[in-house]
Amino acid sequence: MKWIPALGLAALFAVGSTAAHAAKTIKVGNFFPDSHPVNIALNETFKKEVEARSNGELKVRIFSNAVLGGDEKLYNSVRGGTLEMAIIGNIMENEVEHVGIIQLPFLFNNYAHAQAVFASPIGETLVSDMTEKTGLHFLAYGVQGFRVIASNRSIQSMDDFKGLRLRFPGIENMIAIGKELGANITPLPISEVFSALEQRVVDGVENPYPNIVASKWYEVTSHILESNHVFTPNLYMMNDKFWNGLSESEKTIVSEAAKAAAEQEWKLLIASEEKDKQVLSEAKVEIIVPDAAFKQQMIDAVQGSYDNFYSGHPRAREIVEEIRAIKP
Rank of each mutant, 00 (worst) to 15 (best):
P208A: 15
S154Q: 15
D129Q: 02
F231E: 08
Q156H: 07
H98M: 13
A86T: 13
K327L: 05
F118L: 11
V202I: 15
P233C: 05
F32D: 13
I319C: 08
T221A: 12
A261Y: 07
E192K: 12
M92C: 03
P33W: 01
I4A: 11
S191C: 01
P208K: 04
H36V: 08
R61A: 14
V285F: 07
F294G: 01
T82K: 10
Q296P: 00
A19K: 06
F161W: 04
S64A: 13
L136D: 00
V193F: 01
G163E: 09
F168V: 03
E44Q: 15
F32H: 10
G69K: 07
T18K: 05
V67A: 10
K2A: 12
E44S: 14
N109V: 08
G204C: 11
S151D: 06
V99G: 03
E226C: 03
L68C: 02
Q103P: 00
G304C: 01
G80F: 06
Q115S: 10
K2S: 11
I299Y: 04
F118D: 05
I224Q: 04
H113E: 07
I224T: 09
V50R: 01
S64P: 01
E274A: 15
N184L: 06
R317L: 07
T25P: 06
I224P: 04
I87R: 00
P187S: 04
H229T: 08
E219T: 09
Q115C: 00
L268H: 05
E172C: 01
F309P: 00
I149N: 02
F13L: 15
K277L: 14
G8R: 04
R147V: 05
E84G: 01
G163L: 03
P37C: 13
I326K: 11
S77E: 08
K277H: 07
L9W: 05
G178H: 06
M130D: 08
T252S: 11
M92A: 15
G312T: 14
M1C: 12
L74V: 04
L225F: 03
K259W: 06
H313Y: 05
V117G: 09
F231C: 01
S272Q: 13
N234F: 12
A66K: 09
L7M: 10
A316S: 14
H229K: 10
L269N: 13
